[in-house]
Structures are given as structure tokens and as C-alpha cells.
Amino acid sequence: MEFSPVAALFAALTIVIYVIANFFYLRFRKTPLNPVLTATVSLVLILVVFDVPYETYMKGGDWIATLLGPAVVALAVPLYKHRKLLQDNLMPIAVGIVAGVVVGLISGTLFTMWLGFSEELIYTVLPKSLTTPVAMQVASTIGGIPSLAAVFVMVAGFTGILFGPYLLQMLGINSPIGRGIGLGTSAHGLGTAKAFEYGPEDASMSSVAMTLSAVLGALLSPLVAWLLI
């Protein structure tokens, strides 16, 4: 990590834009105003307009990205608080998450292979359903591109919140456990935010599914990569 005025400037800029983006999202609560999306677009525009290389921006960006590691560790706390829910529904949660993670990892890998993409891109698409901090670290562990992996994670998240409700309805998935596990396993944090709109039980299920599928995905990704590629 570099300690320079430029680094401090870009770290501060990222935080300020994030705060503004959050303010607008909390004020209007519309999906296209998702703070990650609006903050990313704003920062990209600033870099393009002022002709700042990404490498220069990341001198400050790295300060913020350092918090990803401890944040992944911290996910153990909400999971621990939901341990009763986990214990009471162990089988449905376990079966749902294993099914979702396996289908997600294998389908993403196969589709990417069939269309003839490079190995690096296959490894980048592989962790798309995992929560962003985990997906980025998995991508870098198995040989993908972490920042591009983060973009695919966002695409997966938006797929979940935009099309998820129609898919769930079409398939007759109408219980808090089915909806929560479906949203959390496929669309991580964004899916969990959507699950809140169905009710607190959906949200708890989704939050548990997000964390457990991230752990399972981190364990299985290297295996799937090794078996299929």
C-alpha cells in the first residue's frame, strides 16, 4: 500500500461518492439507484473525463479494498446469530445450497468453455454467485481477474433482483425457505435485500444462504476448475 497525497485523494473521493450514492438510494429506494452501481458509474466517468489511469486510482482504492478480508471474517457473526434458524432447517438449507452452488459453478464453467473463452475468463466467471469479497478472493486464488469477477457478481445480483421474482413465481417457489435460499444462493447481498421485501424470514434465510454458499463456493471452485478445465 502506498501512502501519498494522490492515494489519500482517491480513497477520500471513493468514500464521498459512496456516501452520496447511498443517500440517493435510501431517499428513493429504486433498484437502478443501487449504490454500488451509481458509485461505480460515477467513479468510472471521473477517471475517463480526467484521464486518470486505473492504476493511479487504485493507489487510494487499495486502502479501501484492504477491508474486504476482515469483512469476510466478520460474516461469521451474522451467521452465528442465525444459528437457531440454521439448526431448525438444516436439511432444506443444506440441500438447497449444495444444489444451487453446484449448478451455478458447473453451468457457468460449461457455458463459458463452450463459447471458447480463455481459461482466465472461465476462472473469472466461475465465482459469480458468491458474495463480492469472497468471489474476488476466489478469482485471484484460482487464476481469474478479481475486478472483472466483481463485475460479474454485480450482473448476477441484478439478474436475481430483476428477474428472480418472476422465476420464483413461475416455478411455484412460494415458501420463505424456498425464496430465501433461492435468492441468497444465486444473488448474494442484492438477493438478500430483495428477500427483505418478502418478509423477515425470507431475509434471514437469504442471509444464511449467502454466507454458506460463499463458503461452499470457495471450497468447491478449485475442485470444479480442476475437474472441468
Binding site: 432447517n89 436439511m91 432444506p92 438449507i93 440441500v95 438447497g96 445450497i97 449444495v98 444444489a99 444451487g100 452452488v101 453446484v102 449448478v103 451455478g104 453451468s107 457457468g108 457455458f111 463459458t112 463459447l115 473463452f117 475468463l121 466467471v125 459469480k128 454467485s129 460479474f152 450482473v155 448476477a156 439478474t159 436475481g160 428477474f163 428472480g164 422465476l167 420464483l168 416455478l171 417457489i173 415458501s175 425457505i177 424456498g178 425464496r179 435460499i181 433461492g182 435468492l183 441468497g184 444462493t185 444465486s186 444473488a187 438477493g191 444462504a209 454458499s213
Partner: peptide, 28 residues
Amino acid sequence: KGVLLLPIVIISTLLTMAAAGLASQTTA
């Protein structure tokens, strides 16, 4: 060609949701 990665991610996400949702609901 990379733009094709977007439909890949979208379809794979929907398959993931269907598998996870159906499997957990049926088991429950």
C-alpha cells in the same frame, strides 16, 4: 465477443436460483 459473458452469467444465475429454491422447498 466478451459481451456474450453477460447472457452466460444471467442464465447461470437463474439456473442457480431455480436449483437452490426448488431443492430447499421440496426438502422442507
